[in-house]
Design a binder for these strands. Structure first.
Lengths: 155, 155
DNA sequence: TATAACTGATACTATATTTATATCAATTAG
DNA sequence: CTAATTGATATAAATATAGTATCAGTTATA
């Protein structure tokens, strides 16, 4: 059972790179090379994040992507929702009778509760938190204070 | 993002039916009809549960499946592991550098923590708990004290 | 102003996973 | 003997995930 797909995985790591380079544009190619991700695939992921206003882009030479949104307001939950759809424990259990009369569904309570817990956990892990953890690591290892160094950790 | 696949879903509901009829054999056909599951697919699920000693079977006329294990000792976590594999947040994040020097991986801690939380939640939801909730519902609605009634709730 | 480095958009292919079906042999109650 | 059942296994269909390719448009800069 794989909770995060590659798209979400790549999205998180790309955001961490953009977060470490806030204020300047980083090209898809640079991210792909540093993080060892398939270039075109990554581009699709980046474009999706633009559509969701997480990042902005600049075309042409010296162009690339830049983190716009506050990293603390980008939770892994949101990224999962963008790339994997809303977390739902089981669509099947809500069919038929269960759907037409939910109050009868004894399973529903447990399932909704877990869904809530899971969502909450993922919501609390933000890009901001991850970035700070990365920086704490970097303090101990100055060589990692570069995009290259970051890549060596997150790729 | 779908947390439970059909196999796990069918497994849970089949176990609830077997749990409600403990002591007697229930055929795959009966479960499939009552719970509206594809017959052969369900049979595969049941056989898998036999291999994991959750249920036993009897061949021939009047044969079927019976719950063997204590329902309180069958957690949804175990069912997920059987039908969907071990819960892992992201295989990708543990590759390469991250794998060769895990202590450097700042993402790892968060990810392991969530994995733990998720597993814990699913472990605590047992077939026994679900059965008792069903019975509580049945007390208020006597018509549901049959396999047919149960099906009207869980299918 | 030509060019190379970029993104936007989109179509396509490949691979893996999930879901479902089909078949045949063996067992068993009646 | 027969019909109802499971055991085992092969296969197909559907869907989701992962990855590739292409072309048009933009922009810094030589």
């Amino acid at each position: 059972m794989k909770v995060l797909t590659k798209k979400t995985d790549y999205a998180i790591r790309a955001l961490l790179m953009l977060g470490a380079k806030r204020g300047s544009y980083v090209s898809a190619k640079a991210i792909a090379v540093e993080q060892d991700m398939p270039y075109q695939f990554l581009r699709g992921v980046l474009q999706e994040m633009i559509r969701h206003d997480l990042i902005v882009s600049k075309e042409g030479v010296q162009g690339g992507f830049m983190l716009e949104k506050d990293p603390d307001e980008i939770g892994v939950k949101q990224l999962i929702e963008i790339f994997q759809g809303t977390v739902q424990v089981s669509e099947c259990m809500f069919r038929k009778q269960i759907c037409t009369n939910r109050s009868r569904c004894v399973l529903r309570h447990e399932i909704m509760r877990i869904e809530h817990v899971v969502n909450n956990e993922f919501e609390q892990v933000t890009i901001g938190k991850l970035l700070r953890k990365l920086q704490a690591t970097n303090t101990l290892m100055p060589a990692l204070n570069t995009v290259e160094g970051l890549a060596s950790i997150t790729q």
